[in-house]
Write a protein that binds this DNA or RNA. Structure first.
Lengths: 129, 129
DNA sequence: CCGGATCCGGGGCGATACTG
DNA sequence: CAGTATCGCCCCGGATCCGG
């Protein structure tokens, strides 16, 4: 039988790589976070836009549709005029929030050290040059 | 001192976003994994290259220097001819491996469901079109 | 109110060639 | 063996316009 993906992390189809391709897109992690905080309630498109400063309506739309396509979120349209569109995470999307939250914690605790290391590196190359 | 970044996750300088910009680059997560598995031993450049199929020497070099610059790895050169360059993770780099491993586990367990959702979506739009 | 279509710029990433 | 410089492709992501 074919073995599970356990040992194939360096396969071109490496699941980790493909996951990072998704959550690495600029707005995905923020959208997931907002939806996760609101769960199990839905969030309207306009509300998401307000909660994520800087996101354009295009990229928010693209990001949300990617999440839906990946089965991480669901979309519900009220066929009114004007339309109202709501999003919420699926169970799968909520499960992704767990490791994503761990990553956020790490970032909050350690990014300052990365910044510091960069500053040292800059100063060192400036002095050395 | 200014307060920590706890509440500023949607700041333009959002630490999570900046962390994802780093580990989201194509080869970083793989390099970190290989170095983490080898820890506390060093790994030579050529050995890394062999262990990461598909990586070009340029991109491996760029990725490693980024890790060093961020304080996640250290570089040691044996001034021989030809030179031998060794890398290992710092304590900071090793700590990053923890949430990264959680992400890998999630990917291994759930990416198939994402693929399935994509297949459904493709079939649906094909049938609907 | 929502989001698709189009145009455009920037940067990641790969291939290749060259240095020490 | 390790790293750098150059070129080119591709796609993310922003601005704008248009359609339901």
């Amino acid at each position: 039988m074919t073995s599970p993906v356990r040992g194939d992390l360096f396969d071109p189809e490496c699941p980790t790589r493909r996951l990072l391709d998704r959550i690495g897109t600029k707005w995905t992690s923020m959208v997931v976070k907002v939806l996760a905080e609101a769960a199990p309630h839905e969030v309207r498109f306009a509300e998401l836009r307000r909660r994520i400063p800087g996101v354009s309506q295009k990229m928010l739309s693209v990001t949300l549709h990617s999440l839906v396509r990946d089965g991480l979120a669901v979309r519900r349209v009220e066929p009114t005029v004007p339309p109202r569109v709501h999003y919420r995470l699926t169970e799968l999307g909520l499960s992704l929030e767990v490791p994503l939250a761990a990553l956020r914690i790490w970032a909050e605790e350690h990014m300052a050290r990365i910044d510091h290391a960069n500053a040292i590196s800059d100063a060192g190359s400036a002095a050395g040059g």
